[in-house]
Simulated scan of single mutants.
Amino acid sequence: MEEKHSLTITDQSGRLDKVLSKEIEKLSRTQVQELIDNNNILVNSKKEKASYKVKSGDQIEVVISQKEPLNLEPEDLHLDIIYEDDDVIVVNKPQGMVVHPAAGHPNHTLVNGLLYHTKDLADSEEGFRPGIVHRIDKDTSGLLMVAKNDHARQSLEKQLASKTNKREYLALVHGNFKTKSGKIDAPIGRNPNNRKQMAINPNGKNAVTHFEVLEQFKDYALVKCILETGRTHQIRVHMKYIGHPLAGDPVYGPKKTLKGNGQFLHAKTLGFYQPTSDKWLEFSVDVPEIFQKQLEKLRRG
């Protein structure tokens, strides 16, 4: 089902995304950008950027596809709950599990499991990600913090924004390092040539990753990555950028790589201030079995 809007510019002025988000109430500027990316917005029968300055007489056509509403079903997914109190849940997400429902993944997600575990999850703006304040990719395993109420959600989001929490990852990457540690400071945005991928993009968002080489093997290394920011696919894109893509990564890694279930990336350590008591909480979990076995194999040479 599609909803169509036709608009002729008269006295409106400014950027295309700003004008449309004002004229069509249900659209945010982010949604306008998505519609532009999908060729669902045409100006005078042509695709224009979100930053295009509208002119009097411009004919704008907007097509909005009506998405099926996501039905959030509680499911008993035997989640590995590491810690829980009245405000937060810390869960060890298995590799292969999507964090929240979306088109193509309506169920079997972490959110479905959380809804079975508790009715107390903070509301989310979009409605389909209750309790979720940060994500890790489907094939990344490890720790996530979940908010059980709005007070907790605001506190955890503030800690993420002000970089006062702790997020440390373990990754198996390609190549031999010349330095034992380093800092990668490179902005990340959508890949202009492939909208499904992220890339180093001068117009992207600020992104900083610190890394430390824990073990060097022949052609591979075990590294610890510490996130200063939390961009989509940040570690995967940054490690590829410095010439050490993640082993097993089907999107950013080479074809010849270690066999696994996707990238060898594990969110090992998570630390944050408890939203009500302000007490520091810190948790660590071991890498999954497939990661451990690959590690032992590399150690044996």
Rank of each mutant, 00 (worst) to 15 (best):
T179I: 12
N112K: 13
V287L: 10
L70K: 01
E68G: 03
E228M: 05
G142C: 05
T276H: 14
E75D: 07
D120T: 04
T269F: 00
P254A: 07
V133A: 11
I24A: 07
L77F: 00
E289S: 06
E3K: 15
H117T: 07
V287F: 03
I60L: 05
T118L: 02
E25M: 07
V237C: 10
N39I: 06
S162L: 06
L246E: 14
T232I: 12
T232S: 14
L72N: 10
E48Q: 13
M239S: 09
G175S: 12
Q274V: 01
N193I: 09
L42A: 04
H134T: 09
S141D: 02
G175W: 06
H233N: 15
Q159A: 12
D86R: 11
R190H: 03
L156W: 05
E68I: 11
Y169G: 01
H134E: 04
N261L: 03
R300T: 06
D286F: 12
R300G: 09
E23V: 12
E215R: 10
N191S: 08
A207T: 04
V173E: 05
H151L: 07
T8A: 00
L27G: 09
L16F: 08
E228N: 08
K178E: 15
K218P: 05
E168H: 00
V287C: 05
E289P: 05
R135L: 08
N176K: 15
A186G: 06
K119C: 00
E25A: 09
S162E: 15
E126N: 14
R29A: 11
A221T: 13
Y169K: 07
A247D: 06
V287G: 05
Q274H: 15
A50T: 09
H210Y: 15
K67D: 08
V32E: 08
K166W: 01
I89A: 04
T140E: 12
Q216N: 03
S141Y: 01
N261I: 02
N39M: 05
N71Q: 15
F211Q: 10
K259V: 06
N193T: 11
Y241L: 00
V62G: 08
E84S: 14
N261Y: 03
Y83C: 15
D11P: 00
H78K: 14
I226C: 08
D17T: 04
L172D: 06
K166G: 00
V90E: 04
L16Q: 06
V88T: 09
